[in-house]
Amino acid sequence: MIATLADILFQGLTLGGLYGMIGAGLALSYGILKVVQLAHGEFITLGAFLAVGAVALVPWLPLPAALAAAFVGCAALGVVTQAAAVERAMSFRDPVVPMLVTFGLSIILRNGLVETVGADLRGLDIGGLAQANVTIAGLTLGLLPLVSLGIALVAFAGLGLLVFRTRLGREIRAVSDRPDIAALMGIRVTHVHLIVAGLSAGLAAIAGVLLAMRASVSPFSGIGHLLIAFEVVVLGGLGSIKGVLLAGLLLGMTQVISARIDPNAGLLYVHLVFFAALVWRALRGGLR
C-alpha cells in the first residue's frame, strides 16, 4: 500500500516535471512575445522525431547529444518561422493575426511530419535507460523518470538563470515590458524576439525528447501536447516559472492517478481538472 502510494507520488512528480517542461516554452513565447504559439505542440513532436532520427543515424548516440540535436534543430526552425512569418504578423495591431498564423504553421508542420516520417507511433530508447532501475531507501525507482525529472529541473533552473541573471535576460524582460522604450535603450528588439522564439522552440524540443523516452509519439501527438502546455500556462500563470512547475505537478499527478483508475481515459481527467479549476475561478469571480 505504502509502496504503491510512493510509486504514484514518484510517477506524478516525474510526469509533473515533464508537463511543466511542456508548458515552459509556451509560457516564454506568450509571456515575452505575447504570441500564442499554436505550433508549440508540433515543435514538441518535431523535437522527439529529431532525436529519434539522430539515434537512428548514430545508434550509440548519448542522451545529451540527442537532446542537443533536437534543441538546435527546433530552435533553428523557431527562429526561421519567427523571422519569416510571425514577426511580420506581430506588427499588425490585431493579436488574432499572429495566433492564426501560428495555427497555419502548426497545420503545415503536422502534415509535413506525416509526409516525412509517416503516421506511426515511435518511441526512443537511449542506452537502455528505459529498463534501468535504482533503489533508494528500499524503493525501486525507474532511472528514466529520474533522469527525465533531472533534465526538466536543470532546464527550468537554466531558464530562470538566463531570464533573471543575465544581460540577455534583462533585455528579454525589457522588450516584453515596453518594446519601443527598449529600442530607445539600444536593444535590438527583433533580435531579442528571434532569440526568444528559438529558445521557446528549443525548450519544446527537450520536452519532446523526454516524452518520446517515456511513451511513444506520433505526428498527431502535438495537439494533446499543446493543450497540456496551455493548461499548464493558464493554471500556473504567465511570468512565473514556479507557477508553471506547480501547475505541471498538479496535472501530472492527476494523470498518474486517473490512469490507475481508468487506463482508457487518456487525458480526459487532466482536461477535466483544468476545466474544473476554470469553473471554480469563474464562480469565485461571480457568474454574471
Binding site: R170, R173, A174, S176, D177, R178, I181, A182, G239
Partner: peptide, 10 residues
C-alpha cells in the same frame, strides 16, 4: 515608462 519586470538597478 520604466521596465517593471526589472529592478531599479537593472
Amino acid at each position: 515608462l520604466l521596465f517593471d519586470s526589472l529592478t531599479v538597478e537593472e
